[in-house]
Structure formats: structure tokens, C-alpha cells
Write a protein that binds this DNA or RNA. Sequence first.
RNA 1: GCCGGCAUAGCCAAGUGGUAAGGCAACGGAUUGCAAAUCCGUCACCCCCAGUUCGAGUCUGGGUGCCGGCUCCA
Length: 475
Amino acid sequence: MELHLYNTLTRQKELFRPIRDGEVRMYHCGPTVYQRPHIGNYRAFLFADLLRRVLELADLKVTQIMNLTDVGHLVDDAEEGDDKLEAQARKDKLDPWQIVEKVSAQFFEDMNALGVQPAHAYPRATDHIEEMVEMVEKLIEMKHAYRVGDNVYFDVHSFPSYGRLSGNRIEDLEAGARLEVNDEKKHPADFALWKSDEHHLMKWDTVFGPHGFPGWHIECSAMARKFLGDHFDIHTGGEDNVFPHHECEIAQSESALNGPFVNLWMHTKFLQVDGGKMGKSLGNAYTLDDLAERGFSALDYRFLMMRGSYRNSLNFTWEALKGAAEARRNLNDFRSRLLGEGGEPEEMNLESLGAESAVAKARVAFRKALADDLNTSESLAALFVLRNAYVHGELDAAEYPVALALLAEADSVFGFFDSIESGGLSDQEIDQLIQERGEARAAKDFARADAIRDELTAAKITLEDTPDGVKWFRG
RNA sequence: GCCGGCAUAGCCAAGUGGUAAGGCAACGGAUUGCAAAUCCGUCACCCCCAGUUCGAGUCUGGGUGCCGGCUCCA
């Protein structure tokens, strides 16, 4: 399975080739744990999860790292900055460390509900102060950075390809009216590697002084290096990370390490709400709890994200979520019906199918779409085409086991199927109840008939009264 | 002011030169004691204008709208 992935750096899809054969190392910019992440944040993390699963589908061994930013960065680049973690702490009357613990726990709970496979490590910035300081010292030594008092800045002119990722030019940045002027810096576009402020609560005593804290971007450079090495395969984040965050990471890392940093940069577009932007101040930055209040599960949301392409902004509406929830249910029922008709998942054996088999076609389409820059929309459509073939009676019963195997493979990538619960009733018991219901219906005792149907529903058994008689399935 | 992206049916969305995937909703019908269950069927010429081409949703130019970056932010 050859993957073609879009690289922000080159602005085109590229054939993906890992640096080490059969092995992928990737880093994801994770949450700043000062407030519970909203569904927009989770779009990026769901993408990271999807990418990992597709890489594994392609038989690659993946090492996946996601950082937790537990030190608040400055709200702006002015000399006197505020720290959003500390600001939140003041608001909640907690100390910053308590906020970090509380929000991190919430984050992992949400990720679990979303069916995200845990990364191999979630390093925290505050656990890696030493590594950051070391890198900053190295940059000073190599004349890529300069110290002004207890502050340290990166000299963007020392890195010729600064701006390559984002398409910005240093001259344009300079002309940008919104750039804060800071007299300390040699150049307005230079960025902070280390800052000092005695009023900060989260601060460290280092060679740069007693009241220091890391700059905006150094944590990712330091932690990525520690966990993945100097040169690794993939780095992802939201589109807002392209500049300045990732641009600065590249500058720092490639300068300090004197070599290539990351081969492939991938970014997810923002989620929009009702056609416009999402924002806390707009009151539409929903959390998973807001979704649950309206009766939607985290997996419904996951499904909604899989219906669109990560490289296009996706418009979140309640109607769209409703549609996703329904569609997910239909796919779930498809699998349940196959199981109900005696199918057991089988090892995929394409050769025995014949190219004309609906299952074989679906699998080819499913994988081909994913391999083309994670086209989940098209990939998902292949599953619905297969479902339609089944519903229209075009699927031979002998193909049910392979169809189920394909759905299992699909689940390994999409991860939105519900687990099948038997509800504690045996087939015999269920048949017995259905027979009783039939008798009750014949005797026009509909109260009794509906009671049985409700009982089965409660046990996760779905009944379908068809012209051919009653059909049932679990799930 | 400077960069970049997007614009497809009521809603979500795929499609990168060859005549519009898929899902949801809606509507008509079947079935049913009823059904929110199930099944059958119907449902778009792709923001506007001008070009290129035998042929454009797909390429080029202009316009309009929305989104992102230039400021912590997925």
C-alpha cells in the first residue's frame, strides 16, 4: 500500500517514504492544558489518530508522540506579557499546576471517548526544561541566538530558509503592522527562546537567570528530538500552527542540529460552525458535553469528522451531526445484520473473491481512497456502496464473512463502530421471545407484543418485521 | 497592508479535462396492529463574469463571499 500525503512544505502530495524502512516516527502538537479542549481542537487530534491508523494499515510500525503544553505562553510578544495558564488559574482561584492536572485528566477522558488510540508518549513541557535550556545554549553558541539581559531571542536572519513553510518573507513580516515592536530584539521578526519575568508563577532558575520560562516554540523542538531523534518523519498540527509555531520550530531545530528536522508537515483545516468561525466568545466552541446534551456520542462526532477531508474546512452544524449519527447507525446495522445472518469475520482473501466481487471492489476502493492523502470521504462511500449491494440482494451469502472482515478492517481505521453487546440473551431465548410476540400479535394483544419488543430493544436486539417474516440482529 | 485556502442539491461532502460518489433530510410508494424499524423509487448542470479547449465543477484572468496566518489558539 503506497501512501501519497500532502506536504505543507512542498505544497503537493508526495509518495510517503519513511526514513527508516518500515518504521514511522511522528509528532503531534497537542493541547495547551489550561481549558478543556473543544470539538475544534479534537478535529486535529482525530486527524492524528486517523493518520496513525492508516500508517499501520500500510504495515508500518508507528511511534507517535503528542506533547502537552503545560506552561502557558505569553499572550503577546510585548515585554510585559500575560500567561494564559496563569490567567486561567487566577480566574479559577487555583494554582497553575492544579489547572494542568484537572484539564489533562479531562483531555484524556475525551480522547478515550472519541476512540483515539493512545500515543506512545505524552511528554509535558515542564518535564523538559533541561532539554530546552540545552538547546537554547547551543543556539547561542552557534550564533543563531542572542541574549539580552535574561531573555534570549532567535535571530531569524541567521536561518536563510526562514519562511519556507508558511510562505512568509521576513521583509513582509517586518512591514506587518500587527507585529509588536520590541526594542530588545535586533529584528522585529526575531522570536523568543527564553524569557524572564520575576512575577511569573511558573518559572525556573537556569543559566539565563532565576525567573525564566521557555519561549513559545522551543518545547516542541526539544521534546521531539528527545523522543524521536534529530530527524524524523511526520509532524502535524492545526493550520494555525504553520506560522509562527512550526516555522520557528524548523528554524530552531535545523539550526541547532545542523541538519534536516522533519520530512513531512501536515496540517488540518479549522472546523467552522454554521459557516463562520468558532470561538469561545461566540459561544459556539462546543465540548463533548454539549454534544452529549443533545444526544450525540463522541463517536458520532468522530464519524462526522471522517466524512470530510482534513485539508478542507468542515462546517459543523447540528443538522450535519444528526446526519452523521444516522449514517453511522446504518453502517453499524449493516455489520450487525451480516453477523445476524450467520457471518463470522474471515481472514481477508482477495484472491478467492474474484475482481468482480462487490466486496473485493469495495476493499480496493476503500484502500485506494485512504492511500490518496487520507480521502476518508471516498473511502467511507465505498462501504456504503457495499451496504447497498447487500441491501439490494447482490451479495452472496458466502461473501458475508469477507464483507465482515472488510468492515473490521474499516473499523481499524475509522474506529466508529459500536461494540456488539449480546445483552445476555441466547439465540434460543430471543427466538422464543419473538415467537411469543408473534402469538401476542396474532391474538391482537399488542400491549404484550410491544412489551416484548421493548424488552428486546433494551437487550440491544433490533427487530425488523419484513414481508418475509421477522428478522433480528444484535447491536 | 502582506501571505495562503475554500465556494458542489435543504444539510454534510467526494470528485483536479470527458459529461456530477456517498450519507442525512424531504417527498411518493410497499409492508405493518402501530412503528421513530425495514424495503422500493424520486431528488444538482457545480457562487458570478470573461477566457483557454473538440470538451471545464475540474485550467486561466477578474469579481463577490467565507476561512486561516501575519498575535496565545487545533
